[in-house]
């Protein structure tokens, strides 16, 4: 399991979504790395990739919505980071489909996603939590 308590920011809305996102990424990585022939797990790969991709977009939108509501001053920069990641995920998915469902591509994607997500939550998202707490902002539902 990738999720660790240290990834909690202390903002319930974001923490709940992060934990869900990490669960989806964990599931995706586990399937990509499952030691069975690629062809046998391909359908599962498609399913989890799609699920994860959709949740990434949903979560980023929710997080950006929260940032706007609290008047987060780093919103534009943060949104740019999100947009670049979404584009990377979409480009990877497109390449995966166009290049005949290449296993190496998925292994590389999973590795990059793992490290990127951990750093993003600990570095970039932490700044939102610091701002929210300094402003004394309550959680949003």
């Amino acid at each position: 399991m990738i999720w660790k308590d240290k990834y909690k920011l202390g903002v319930q809305l974001i923490d709940d979504q992060h934990e869900e996102l990490f669960q989806k990424v964990t599931r995706f990585v586990e399937i990509v790395r499952k030691p069975i022939p690629w062809e046998e797990k391909l359908e599962n790969i498609h399913e989890t990739l799609d699920f994860m991709k959709n949740y990434v977009v949903t979560h980023f939108q929710a997080e950006e919505g929260f940032q706007k509501k609290i008047g987060y001053t780093g919103y534009e920069e943060h949104k740019k980071i999100h947009d670049e990641m979404v584009q990377f995920v979409l480009d990877t998915e497109s390449k995966f489909m166009n290049d005949g469902y290449n296993e190496q591509l998925m292994q590389q994607f999973a590795g990059k996603l793992l490290a990127w997500l951990i750093n993003h939550v600990l570095s970039d998202d932490q700044k939102i939590a610091v701002f929210a707490k300094e402003k004394g902002v309550e959680d949003f539902e």
Binding site: E30, K112, L114
Partner: peptide, 20 residues
């Protein structure tokens, strides 16, 4: 990072370390 048992420097490992 992954909480998983990893014993070989494969594409997944190289990519994760590269991102770090």
């Amino acid at each position: 990072m992954s909480g998983m048992d990893v014993s070989e420097v494969d594409d997944f490992v190289k990519s994760a370390v590269s991102e770090v």
